[in-house]
Design a protein around this nucleic acid. Structure first.
Lengths: 138, 138
DNA sequence: TTACCTGCAAAGAGTTTGCAGGTAG
DNA sequence: CTACCTGCAAACTCTTTGCAGGTAA
């Protein structure tokens, strides 16, 4: 399957018609090697630089929200004025660089096995995410 | 030391004069047995119910921000439209109940020891926080 | 008295919504 | 052709700021 076909499939599986705006958004998000951490304004800026015909913020918000609700994007739990998203939807963890506000992924193999010894009656664990905040040594 | 004196001390150590508005805020935050997780609007609502003379939102934001910057409150990393704070400033972890949006603390003793095997050159680890999302079984 | 504080309202920033015109199927 | 989609602007929510009058020390 070509990348373009995969993008169309992602959109269709989200009940979204593959319009040219949405395909452009999906290319930025998913046609890349490394996972991508972004805010809506990051994404809007990249889209504006890439193509001359600007895509409305409303369309970007709408598309990202639907992709997230369908599990193609993950929202990252970082308190910030803006909402962060991640194209890596697997269960993984983050370094948050307090000096630059940059996020870096890390995986279960980079951390000792986590076992939660306390449980909440009637509740099921949905995810376990570790956020490691780092900063310059000085 | 009486509780009232402790509140005054907290404010003074934050370079804030103990005005009646700020004392009222501090009473809600710190004069309690269990730790308190809240958003600014939670706090404002409690303050408004408690006393008839309403405290301005600006004052609440300002006071909470200073208390946080001085280490008397902690900001919790949860992606939400609102910012969450915690009166428990020790290093600890959270359950986040996706059904009710409620937070519960848990401590190092409730989780296996966490060892980060990957490190970032030139950076020092400031904190390691685990967020466990839970939801109803159905 | 002087520096700091409060409340209000206005301003900002991020996000959502309503609607008229446009496009995929 | 019809249902869905887009862009724009207005609306909304949370948070910050400016300022005139008030209060702690």
């Amino acid at each position: 399957m070509t990348i373009e076909q995969e993008l169309v499939k992602k959109l269709r599986s989200s009940n979204l018609r593959p319009t040219k705006q949405r395909l452009e958004i999906c290319r930025v998000l998913f046609d890349r090697q490394k996972t991508f951490h972004f805010t809506i304004s990051d994404l809007a800026q990249i889209l504006n630089e890439k193509s001359k015909n600007k895509i409305s913020l409303a369309t970007i918000y709408n598309t990202v929200d639907v992709l997230k609700s369908k599990g193609h994007l993950k929202e990252i739990s970082i308190n910030s004025d803006k909402t962060f998203f991640d194209t890596n939807i697997s269960n993984h963890h983050h370094f948050f660089n307090e000096n630059t506000n940059e996020l870096t992924d890390f995986y279960d193999e980079d951390i000792s096995q986590i076992k939660i010894k306390k449980n909440i009656p009637g509740k099921k664990i949905k995810s376990v995410e570790v956020l490691v905040k780092v900063a310059n040594n000085n």
